[in-house]
Write a protein that binds this DNA or RNA. Structure first.
Lengths: 166, 166
DNA sequence: TATTGTTATACTCTATAACTATA
DNA sequence: TATAGTTATAGAGTATAACAATA
């Protein structure tokens, strides 16, 4: 455990701190907007958005869990809340009766539509307001590259399911 | 409420999604490392790091709160935990007896030292591994710019203290 | 036997409001 | 009266483990 690598370079440190800072300010602002405009938690918004993106408007629980970092029980909890509000329905899959298919409802799409403009306004105001087109470009390129790599070799936290202890 | 602005451009969307994705994967990985290596929550780490950075090793509660987004009670809670573990001491300021001065202890510095290499390793592995020097550069520049702006005009979530209702 | 999902439970964290004490 | 901080309390969210049901 003797540090095999030197510390981060000054530029890396600056990039890391800046990333952390932006993230720490952006996230709560977005969460507050989602709560104010649609009484949605961030996870709930992600779930709805993902379902809304899908042409069928449906996904299995496992599908939904795989993209996010959350545990299955956590996902069940959030899906229940959405279900109770009528923003989503849950039904057993005919093909595989173990699976639960979650489907966004009209009401769910309506909430999404209500929330979206404000969401975009917050992101624009906090993240993009002061950036040039070129800077946005480079941000997309660089972070896109990082994201690609993380998706290809996900950290433990995103592993689909923990295997048995022994 | 007729959307006053068009949506985000394709590039902006890409940048935002990438940012979100990286953030969503980096944060839990860092949190897990901090917990495993030093039984620290992210906030606790931030507090210790900030105190460790200070030449005096001390800050008032308000000082500490201002940089972070958390409420005062939340900060008291975390500071208590650090205090109980002996990583920090709290004492009344002589100049202003309303203030509580938080000071990092030797044990606190030791935990910080224990945790730091792994912390850096995680950040390097997830964030910087695949980036060129130039890309890190541009990341630091662009996000630094965003951070500067956010610090100058903070969102409500970071406002020092909510004023009375009326 | 492995996989999908839910439930029960415990725990961590955060925020609000009321309160004490000092400036 | 305003500011600094704590405490009491309540609520949201998450994870772990045990469980039931299907493949």
């Amino acid at each position: 455990m003797v540090e095999p690598q030197p510390g981060l370079s000054a530029t890396e440190l600056a990039a890391y701190f800046a990333f952390t800072e932006v993230s720490a300010l952006l996230r709560p602002a977005v969460e507050q907007q989602l709560r104010d405009a649609g009484s949605l938690s961030y996870v709930q918004f992600q779930l709805l958005a993902r379902l809304g993106d899908d042409p069928t408007g449906s996904r299995s629980m496992t599908d939904l869990a795989d993209g996010l970092v959350y545990s299955r029980s956590g996902l069940t909890y959030q899906a229940q809340l959405l279900d109770q509000r009528g923003l989503v329905t849950r039904s057993t899959s005919p093909q595989d009766e173990r699976r639960v298919v979650v489907t966004i409802t009209e009401a769910g799409r309506a909430v999404l539509a209500t929330v979206f403009p404000g969401h975009i306004a917050v992101v624009r105001g906090l993240l993009f307001e002061s950036l040039t087109t070129h800077e946005v470009d480079s941000l997309a390129t660089v972070l896109g590259k990082v994201g690609d790599r993380l998706r290809a070799a996900p950290p433990r936290s995103a592993s689909p399911r923990r295997r048995k202890a022994s």
